[in-house]
Design a protein around this nucleic acid. Structure first.
Length: 425
RNA sequence: GGAGAGAUGGGUGAGUGGCUGAAACCAGCAGUUUGCUAAACUGCCGUACCUCUAAAGGGUACCGGGGGUUCGAAUCCCCCUCUCUCCGCCA
């Protein structure tokens, strides 16, 4: 969430940023937060002064009791009851204001970076670059949801039987391709200097709050009510929360982690025409890269992550483009997001396979993730993450773009990982 | 699932009502000593908020979380959460 001092000192910038997101009643909402903050501060000052007096009285009484001056002690005691009452009232008011403030702040999204284009929807995103040529397909080219049946590598019917829609079963070379891709992505991240972690895929409430999935978006996550745990929608959640409540010393930075996890999304209400096959699932695999960076270096790191992801797509020989998301399409917690989309030839569609974002201090403020600075106060760090990569749509594009009359050809880079070069009937 | 124990600062760990924001040790930082390393010695060494500010300073809160008793709570009482140990089960 945003920091109150920033709201106070850069009010105009904040409002302008929120308006770029088409955030409704930005000026009004910020003003009401500033009012709450103002009120809280003045009440707290008052409360602290009363408490200070009460503390002094308590000390005096202690002294009198010791020296046996009981009568004077009793007299002072009677003075404290009024103080106590007033302090208690103020205390309750301050607490109430604090929780109102907290609640209001949770509802304010991050401020977009200056390079974020204005815009309302995905149509307004800026195409930063396109790479690779659209492949020529044979005449009877099929979309991937047909190919997976023909080659018997991914089975949606079986998934429906054991779980439900959106939980496919990968079989034979389909399963081996998954494993190959995961290993390939992990190895590439290791080469790029990321440390591998394997986090839990169930997280508690505090973790969900830390990265911004809670309190507002619980409907997107599967929830285990018996234990109050959430299935992760992305490894971003457990990996970033590794550093929750940490004050990191500068020599440990930057932190670069990579992790493979399954991801779970309820995708409530989002089923429609564009979500056939592997395009949108309830469970899928993803390799995620996460960085904890100093404010000075975070945007350079974002570019570095973008390059890393593009490198993967190039090695997979997939045509892709990079989008800079507009204010209206960006995620709630992000300051700048690039989406990477591959061209899935048989569908004739661009498919999002990665999203890489700089959250600046927005998550760090919730996480209380800071660095120790010389001589000064601990300073909030910047968090970043990106998919590198999400598997299903990569698989969809690989299948569609590489279909030939003889079978589906895998890109060279995968051969040693998969143990086969071709998927045949 | 059953029984018990516990939760204190970066770590270990003392602390059963005021002298405890918290001993001691370790780690860390600065300095003295030193041919180098090591050792020894001295000092510093939590966080948040409020206030004030050029800086310093002052105030309040925090010993897992919440409530209570009391003039006064890390310390006493209640509730919750979590962790550990033993038993059971088990990849």
């Amino acid at each position: 969430m945003l920091q109150i001092p920033v709201l106070r000192e850069q009010t105009e910038l904040v409002i302008a940023g929120l308006e770029k997101r088409n955030f409704r009643d930005a000026a009004q909402q910020i003003q009401s937060i500033l009012d709450l903050d103002q009120k809280r501060r003045s009440l707290q000052t008052e409360r602290d002064e009363l408490q200070s007096r009460a503390n002094n009285l308590a000390k005096e009484i202690g002294g009198l009791m010791k020296s046996g001056q009981k009568e004077q002690a009793e007299q002072l005691k009677s003075e404290t009851s009024d103080l106590k009452q007033r302090t208690k009232t103020l205390d309750e008011e301050v607490q109430q204001l604090e929780s109102q403030l907290q609640e209001a702040l949770y509802k304010i999204p991050n401020i977009p970076h200056e390079s974020v284009p204005a815009g309302k929807s995905s149509e307004d995103n800026e195409v930063v670059l396109e790479h690779g040529a659209v492949p020529q397909l044979p005449e009877n080219a099929q979309p991937h949801w047909e190919l997976i049946k023909q080659y018997n590598i991914i089975d949606f019917e079986l998934g429906i039987k054991i779980t439900g829609a959106g939980f496919p079963v990968y079989k034979g070379k389909g399963a081996r391709l998954q494993r190959a891709l995961i290993n390939f992505f992990l190895d590439e991240a290791l080469k790029a200097g990321y440390d591998e972690v394997q986090p839990p895929i169930l997280v508690n409430e505090a973790s969900g709050i830390g990265t911004g999935q809670l309190p507002d978006k619980e409907g997107q996550m599967y929830h285990d009510a018996a234990d109050n745990l959430y299935l992760i929608p992305t490894a971003e959640v457990p990996i970033t929360n590794l550093y929750r409540d940490e004050i990191v010393s500068a020599d440990k930075l930057p932190i670069k982690n990579v992790g493979y996890t399954p991801c779970f999304r309820r995708e409530a209400g989002s089923w429609g025409a564009d979500v056939r096959g592997l395009n949108r699932l309830h469970q899928f695999d993803k390799v995620e890269i996460v960085q904890i960076q100093t404010p000075e270096n975070s945007y350079a790191a974002l570019e570095e992550m973008s390059q890393h992801i593009q490198g993967l797509l190039q090695k997979l020989e997939l045509p892709y483009r990079v989008l800079r998301l507009c204010g209206g399409d960006m995620g709630f917690t992000s300051a700048l997001t690039y989406d990477m989309e591959v061209y899935s030839a048989a569908q004739g569609r661009w498919l999002e396979v990665s999203s890489v974002s700089n959250f600046e201090t927005y998550q760090a403020n919730r996480l209380k993730l800071r660095q120790r600075t010389e001589g000064g106060k601990p300073q909030l760090l910047h968090t970043l993450n990106g998919s590198a990569l999400a598997l299903p749509r990569i698989v969809a594009a690989l299948l569609e773009n590489n279909q030939t009359p003889e079978g589906i050809k895998l890109p060279k880079v995968l051969h040693s990982y998969s143990g086969f070069e071709m998927i045949t009937k």
